[in-house]
Each structure stands twice: as structure tokens, then as C-alpha cells.
Design a protein around this nucleic acid. Sequence first.
DNA 1: CTGTTAGCGCATTCAA
DNA 2: TTGAATGCGCTAACAG
Lengths: 337, 337
Amino acid sequence: MATIKDVARAAGVSPSTVSRVIAGSDRISLKTKERVRRAMERLDYVPNAIARSLARSHTRTVGFTLARRADQAFSNPFFSEVLRGMSSVAQKRDYNILLSISMDEREERDKCLQLLRERRVDGLIVSTSRIEDPLIEALVDEEVAFVVIGRSASRPVLSVNNDNIQASYQAAMHLLKQGYRQIAFISGPSELVVSEDRLKGYQQALMDSGIPVSKDHIASVEFSEEEGFQALSRMREQGIPFDAVLAADDLFALGALRFAQEYRISIPDELGIIGFNDTPLMTYTHPPLSSVRILSYELGVEAMELLIDVLEHPEKRRNSKEIVLPSQLEVRRSTSR
Amino acid sequence: MATIKDVARAAGVSPSTVSRVIAGSDRISLKTKERVRRAMERLDYVPNAIARSLARSHTRTVGFTLARRADQAFSNPFFSEVLRGMSSVAQKRDYNILLSISMDEREERDKCLQLLRERRVDGLIVSTSRIEDPLIEALVDEEVAFVVIGRSASRPVLSVNNDNIQASYQAAMHLLKQGYRQIAFISGPSELVVSEDRLKGYQQALMDSGIPVSKDHIASVEFSEEEGFQALSRMREQGIPFDAVLAADDLFALGALRFAQEYRISIPDELGIIGFNDTPLMTYTHPPLSSVRILSYELGVEAMELLIDVLEHPEKRRNSKEIVLPSQLEVRRSTSR
DNA sequence: CTGTTAGCGCATTCAA
DNA sequence: TTGAATGCGCTAACAG
């Protein structure tokens, strides 16, 4: 493997001259520039990225970390899409992505800090956002360049999020317009910012429609189909009436679907169901389920662009900025009566 | 950020001594070892991975590349699971994953070669395996350490694969045992090794059962639900009778499902359907679809372990080795009559 | 416009 | 058991 010295020798110049033509310096004669180019060509020379990183003290790679357990894992393609979006702009702007999937948040936090301290990455994209998020706290304290996918409730940071409140509001409004009056809401873990936001939209919609918000209609459970099923079963057992379900995740909507089947409740007539994320699955169920489509790919694109922007303009690092992407309601048979 | 020099100064030793305790050298007195340890602790010192990489000329990071277009993309969680598997062993053995998602194979090939030439990665895991695969050819020619997820039809390489032939054979046998006699086979693009293998299993099963293999019953199309649907529609138009569909991908099975619905063909009575990959989706369709479950997570685990093994034992690099993981038939209503 | 010099932070000889 | 010297491959400040 040829080094910069080999090229210099072959072209009859000094290594720094070669370095300059690599960098595209303009104060170099076209003649030697050409000569160096040919030498590089001939020797099949490619600059060693590690050496460059050491000399310039940045790596042009960003870390992306997330914590998923086996069960929930990637059952929906959300993160895959985010990754695709991130990768496409990374490719375009000549950055690389270092990926790490952890078992839990603790492991994720350690991994982030490690990547940073080892100087393997210039910045980070993280996706966990709990209401009190120790990872985010640590990152702002260490003054690292990072952007969160989601929203930070504690500190002002750079973030890219979808309009959860608005989306949830509209989903609830849609149910109301279809004539449903008693809407159950199945939320994910309450320590997540996303749960808080979606709940807020739901509540706001009811209030704006003059419908009292009842705690009985709100469940907060772990993300899984089974938990969604159970949540509704419990409401039914307790004699709490509901004629629609707004599910903060498609998994819950699936659970609601099974619930309806089990108790022979007809959809959409007796029960309306709407989910969140619009996984491909939703069009294949019986009946097809309405859902809020998230622009996951675009989320990844925006996050990466924001991060690179900050990386290349350190003066912007102090700013906080919240990009919000619109989501769109996909109405299907489960809410069309 | 403290460097090795700072630690050396603080501990009153030379940088090389510090380097030795980092490396865990045993020819160092316990006393100085302790002193250095404390200094590292006090200064919150973490070795710079880039500098280490340059000095030792390897990075402890492996590249994972794949080419996906927007449409097919990650509609199934196969690659997400592979990634989780890879990441879990990478974590354990202190390796990192550099991820790149390309638009097409050409871009993927370029990216692989770039990562290698720039020395950003020590080795590669690739997942494309076409019958004639220029990427694989290039990698063996350049003598790089890599493992393919899938099977290489051209050159002997390190690979981790699932038992496609066997799985397809058993799927077909299952249909036969259920009494289906005219089995249509929907295959992916014929240039993929996986298509070849699954076709082979199907053919073998028919032959072993004394049933003639007819070209009319075999379609080869791009991966999509729509193409699966179209393939069957064409057979029907041409008056080719079939009472079951063996789909080389769940997407095709979904297309077959829609086909059955459209023409009011009852499943499983008039038409049996079985897919490949067992995406979570399959349990939610109406009726639930049988499918061959692939051990995607384990595929990632094995691939990463194999690669790291080779990386740390260069003498093994010349060997080729093919690890084959079993898959399992998930029988559901779509084939139970 | 170009070469010389001095790092970047660490690992690894070679001596002592 | 330890330190000094050298190199990994490249960039950048300073001269000229």
C-alpha cells in the first residue's frame, strides 16, 4: 500500500506538496499538480484515513447508538429507515457511521461516552429521549456535538422530531369526526417524551371538543402487542366503556385488533382503531388499520444534516434547534364507518 | 483531554511505561503499575483510539455494507436483526461497526473498497451474493478479510448462510403432505444465489415425490408484493392450474394472499400459501401465513464471530468455511387444511 | 509556489 | 523493569 512519501518520491516533490494537492490547495502550479495526480494514479494511492484523522484531529465519522431489546427490537422498520436516511447524507457528504446497538440504556450511555473519549467519532446521533435523560445530560455537560432524534424535555439541544402532539391531536379529531365518543388511549412508558407528547395531543383534542378526559380511558404500558391487548381487556373487565382506541404505537393497535376479534366486537362499527408509525403491516390486517405515518427516513436525513452542519461550523454548537417534521394520517377501514 | 504524556508526567514515568500498563504487559513492577493506574484514573485518561490504530495499523472496526432501495428496503426486519446480532458480539469483543447503506451494488462495491483502502476497517461483512458477484471477486483478489452473509457461488470464501435448499425442500414437502399437488414457485431475481438455492429445494422436493417440474409453475420477479401478485395473475390468465404457492419471500406470499382475495379463492382449501423469512406480519394476515423462519440474529452473530476470528488469526484467512444455520417452518392456517 | 520542520498520540524496538 | 529513540502516515506552520 503506497504512502504519501511514495507518491512524493515518484512525483519528485515533497510530501507536503502531495498533501496540498490532496487537499485541493490552489497555490500550487498546475504542472506539479498534474504530475502528482499521475503519480497517485500510477501507485493506486489512497490517503490513509486514520493518519489523516490523527493529524487533523477529527474522524469524519459520527456515532449512532440505540438500545433495543430482543423482543421489541426492530419489529417496526422505524430505525432501519432512519438509518437509511442518515446513511444517504453521510454518503453524500463523505462521512461515516459507527453503529452500536445496546441491550439497555445504561450500556448505551457507556458506549456513547466511550466512542467520544476514544475520539472514534466527531459527534453523535442518539434516539433515546426520556423525560429525565441522563445520556443527554452527560452529553451537554461534556459539550459534545450531538443531535437527538426525538425531543429533549430537560435541556435545550439540537433535535429532529416529528410533530407528535399535533399528530395525536389530529388522530383523535379524526376519531371524533367519525362519531366515536369514548376514546381509549394506550400509551407507551410514561417516562418517554414521546409518550408525554402523544398523550398531550389526545387530551387537547378531547378538551377542544368539550369531552371530559378520564383517567380510566388512559393506559400506559410497555411496547408490545400483548400489553396493548391486556390494557383493553382490563378496561373492559372494569366496565369502562369505549368505542375507539387511539394507540400510541402500531403494536398496541394490533393488540386492540386481537381484543376486538376475541370479544367479537366489530371494527369499525363498534370499535374504531388507529395506531402510530404506519408499519407496512397495517395494510394487511383485517380490516386494515388506520395509522399515523412518520417520516422516518427524513428524520434520519435531517438529523445527519444538522449534525454535520454543527460539526463543520463549531460556532453553531451552542445553539439549540428543534426541527419538527410533519406526519400524516393514513385513514383505513378500521376507522371508516 | 489527557494524553499518554500527561499520565506519564503525573506518574513520574516515561510514556512507554504507561503504554505498557495499558497493554497489560507483565514485565512491569506492581508498584509502578499501580502508580500509573492511579494517574490514569485521576486524569480521567482514555487512550486515543485513532492514535492506537495508526501505531498498531489496525482499527478494531469492521464494515458492514448493504445495498437497498427505498421500496424493498427494510420492509422486513431481516437486516435489522442481523445488525443486532453483529453488534452484540462486536460489543463483547470490543470491536466497532461501520455501517454503510448504498443505493445499488455499484455504489456498495465502491464503498467497500474505499473503506478498505482508506484503512478505516480491518475487515468486511457483506450480504450481497449474486451468482457472479464482482464485489466478492474484488475482495478475494485484494485478499481482504471478509465474510459473506449468504453463499458465494463463484469463489470459496468465509460465509454464514441459512440452509435455503433444505428449507425450501421442506416447505414444498409440507405442501405436498397437505395434499397440494400443483405448486407454483415465485422466485426472486435469478441472479441471486438465494433464488437459485430456494428453487433447487423446490425442484428436488417435486422430483423426490414423483411430480414433474414444470417451467410454467415457476416465476422469477423482483422482490415486491405487487410482483408476486402479478406473477400469479399471469399464470391464471395463461390457464395454468395451481393449488399452492411456495413464495421465496414473504412479500410474494402477501401478493399471493391478495391474489386469492381478489379472485375469491379460499385459503387454505383451494390455495395453500407459504412464504420465506417469517416477518412479524405473517401472523396478522387473514388467514395467518405459513413461512420459513430464518435465524437472522444468529446469522449476524456467526458472521461477526467468524470475521473477528480471522482478523485475530491471520493464518486462517486462506481457509474457506461455510457455516450453515437451520431454519424452521412455521406452519399456520394458510397451509393447514 | 514549494520544501523543511515539527507535531498528532501511541506502540515498539533497542539499550541500559 | 524501565527509558530513549523511532516510526505509523499525514497535516500545518513557517520559511524561503
